[in-house]
Amino acid sequence: MMTTQQPGATTIPDPQGAPAIELVGLEKRFGSVHAVRGLDLTVAQGEIVAFLGPNGAGKTTTIDMMLGLSMPSAGTARVFGMDPRDAIGRGLVAAVMQSGGLLKDLTVRETVDLTASLFVQTRSVDECLERAGIADIGDRKVQKCSGGQQQRLRFAMALVSDPALVVLDEPTTGMDVTGRRDFWSAIRQDAQRGRTVLFATHYLEEADQYADRIVLVRKGQIVADGTGAQIKAMATGRTVRATMSGLSDRQLAAIPGVDSVELQGDSVSLHSKDSDAVARYLFANTNARDVEITARGLEDAFIALTGDDDQQGA
């Protein structure tokens, strides 16, 4: 077990200044399938990041490498500047998986208690049950719990080590509306304390609503990275609606930034990738009133950016 090292060669992990997640040139091949193809991602501490992509985009494969559950074929995954296994050993990382990972013959409380026993630094079991909204079913056997309750239990297990990074794979699957609200409220409270959150979800609205940043993945590569608003604008632009008179559709189309025009009497719809500039122009130079800027939903952006154009889904 003893290794001789040069003085100074010992690497004492310094998680303080390191990014929560740092993926560099990450690749994963399964035989002929190239699931992750050179993925670079840096997540700063305290960020809430949504990881979005169609099935088979390589999200779960990437998460597995991030958690040290599988080894990259090329590239590196670091968590708080450490090997993911080291970070997990220190209790810096917790993950909520979509399914499985529970013992049916344990009670809810025993499951969290067992999990807590494995870490050096923990929150109290009661506190975690309370925060996950399952304090009242602590004595219930896991097999008697509904899907939503089991998902709350996985969340309680993730909270118990007070991790600095939580990775969530479809976290609110099976939860009812109340469950989701409680869940995200707990997540946000902890973000205030500097906890980093990365979640994969199919609830695109959830990503838009709760993430600081959305990372879109397609065929093992990142195709877009930005705020929900940026992502939406990137794919679809926005529509500026106004009531105005005096300009022909040709004049409207000449406004800087306008991509297309729809004119119905006094009602004007201008499509643009830079709606701010268009709105500014309208206020400064025209008699436009009732100005309204709308974005198309993230759903549309998601489909536009990740749509499979060559039927080569991996």
Binding site: G68, I88, A94, G100, L102, L103, K104, L118
Partner: peptide, 12 residues
Amino acid sequence: QGWSRQLRLTPL
């Protein structure tokens, strides 16, 4: 049942 995988996400 995925319990071993869950344990791999702990220091055990």
